[in-house]
């Protein structure tokens, strides 16, 4: 058969394929550009940017867990202006869409970074789900009224489609998703990391200097698939699904649960070609199953 259609449209932005990167696992792209052509990806979602530079948390910032990792990087970044001046040009060379993940401590901070970035990137992803910062971050993403408020105010300032990234550290993710939708979100991405902790039993101290951190990797995948399914039932917005995707089979699971696109993150630390392998594997699956369009598998799970 002819090659299946791999392109997807997320909030009016056409991606060449449904695979992107999970923010914070891919830097600003250039590190992995040494391993593969970034044009292989539908979009590249960059490390979180704030209006002013952030130093991040003290080390150790990473701890291994069974089938995953905890991290507490704390949104270290050189600031949005530095990014525009020094990093953007490099990734613009590739045939891929650019998503800037944005963070802040106050709603005003989020608006400030949105105004700096303007329309110089293709999409914005509102990070209201980082568990590693004292102010802002997850605090915004776990209360439905705050989600509505920040989404609507950032949306007002945004010149490109706004993706809202949801936290899994909530009782009812469908309710939060609905708030983001009514606040004006153009798309949703989920899940961010799950708050976790590891303790060194010899020293009786947490391994992370920040004590707690965000869990990612294969360990979180079933939770993420479940949440994508629940959010799909609750909203009409495009969904970018993520959380422990390592293989194309994982990615297809997310799409069947209702994700229109998928992000690979932590798996890339184990295999720097994971992003490309997931994309190629999805295409292979479509060919083998005689499916002509990747969009046709979205939300096709049939409950028992």
């Amino acid at each position: 058969m002819t090659k299946p259609n791999m392109s997807v449209e997320i909030a009016g932005v056409k991606w060449n394929n449904p695979v992107t990167t999970a923010s914070g696992t891919f830097g600003f792209g250039k590190e992995y550009a040494e391993y593969f052509d970034l044009g292989e990806l539908g979009a590249v979602c960059l490390k979180s940017l704030s209006a002013v530079p952030r130093l991040g948390n003290p080390s150790p910032r990473i701890a291994e867990t069974n089938y995953g990792i905890l991290n507490s990087v704390g949104l270290q970044n050189p600031g949005a202006e530095y990014f525009l001046e020094n990093e953007l040009e490099e990734i613009r060379k590739y045939d891929t869409k650019i998503i800037a993940n944005i963070c802040g401590s106050t709603v005003e901070d989020y608006i400030a970074v949105t105004k700096i970035l303007q329309d110089k990137v293709d999409m914005l992803e509102l990070n209201i789900s980082c568990p590693n910062v004292k102010e802002g971050g997850m605090a915004f993403g776990t209360n439905k009224d705050m989600v509505y408020d920040i989404t609507s105010r950032v949306k007002e300032a945004a010149k490109v489609p706004l993706i809202v990234k949801l936290s899994p550290n909530v009782t009812d993710i469908a309710e939060i998703a609905a708030s983001a939708e009514s606040g004006g979100a153009d798309a949703l991405s989920l899940i961010n990391t799950l708050l976790g902790m590891r303790i060194d039993i010899k020293t009786r101290r947490p391994i992370l200097k920040n004590n707690m951190g965000g869990l990612s990797g294969p360990a979180v995948k079933p939770v993420a698939v479940r949440m994508v399914y629940q959010v799909r039932q609750a909203v009409k917005l495009p969904i970018i699904g993520m959380g422990g995707i390592s293989t194309s089979d994982d990615a297809i699971e997310f799409m069947m649960a209702g994700a229109n696109a998928v992000a690979v993150g932590t798996a890339g630390f184990v295999d720097p070609y994971a992003w490309v392998n997931v994309k190629n594997g999805i295409e292979q699956f479509l060919i083998e199953n005689n499916i002509s369009d990747v969009n046709d598998i979205v939300g096709t799970v049939e409950l028992n």
């Binding site: 696992t25 590190e31 040494e34 990473i62």
Partner: peptide
Amino acid sequence: EERMGCGVGACVTCTCNVNGKK
């Protein structure tokens, strides 16, 4: 030496203080 993730500079977990920067 520091606990490391990706090893290629992308995840920014293995930082140390160099000239006041991470």
